[in-house]
Write a protein that binds this DNA or RNA. Structure first.
Lengths: 121, 121
DNA sequence: TATATAGATCGATGTCTGTCGATCTGGAGG
DNA sequence: CCTCCAGATCGACAGACATCGATCTATATA
């Protein structure tokens, strides 16, 4: 048995095909445009690190209330490394920050996760 | 003006603090456990590439019906590179594959996106 | 002005990633 | 047995990434 054929040409492996012709022509396409995929992948990539994902988790629940100095001891990494992760998240548009005096407060950018979240559902 | 203080100690920058004491003690914590964050980050990382995200998009809508040879011409990359991306997705548990004869059919693993999707919502 | 602190930036380093061409593997058909 | 083809693996390479210690910047306070 040869199993169901690709949706396009309904060929099975056992059928003859002219030499030089692909097994099938592409008929299915992604519904997501390349530019949209690039945007969502950028967000997904920013979330593709356990520390950054936990950072977003904390910030979502305490938006604008958590200073960086309070985040440092939560993770077993140095302050420059944490700063680097926050920059990654900011570059991806996932978070933004506000300085008050010596301290910096981060918050999750509203709706920055919406597109990816909707696509995943 | 000094703005709202961190949630923990309610200190403002102008308040005195004993030397050697942090600006604040950590009081907020992520709700997501480290192991859970690692799992979700692994999935997010796999989706953190436009091509892989579009691949998942195609496979979700034509599960088990699209052979790899049909995927290759959809993207402007070589066959080994596409194979590499599919392996990345498989290593993350996002997709799995089935061989029938010469051809390989990929499908999105059921529920593999559920945890991340739920967290994002 | 001088000191102390929060946080960003710099430079270095080892690892991981995306990409390719070339090659290997295994099933199909003559 | 030999050939052809789909797809996976290999080896190489350039660029990106996570991490650190050291340093810089800017603010607060004495």
């Amino acid at each position: 048995m040869s199993g169901p054929a690709p949706v396009s040409l309904e060929l099975t492996p056992k059928q003859k095909r002219p030499a030089g012709v692909r097994c099938c022509e592409p008929v299915v396409y992604p519904d997501v445009e390349r530019s949209q995929a690039t945007r969502m992948a950028e967000v997904a990539k920013a979330l593709g690190d356990p520390i950054r994902l936990q950072l977003v988790d904390v910030l979502r629940k305490h938006a604008g209330k958590v200073c960086v100095c309070e985040l440092v001891p939560l993770f077993d990494i140095s302050q420059p490394t944490l700063s680097h992760h926050l920059k990654k998240l900011r570059d991806a548009g996932v978070v933004d920050s506000e300085r008050r005096g010596l301290w910096a407060y981060y918050y999750v950018t509203p709706d920055s996760l919406k597109e990816l979240s909707a696509w995943l559902s």
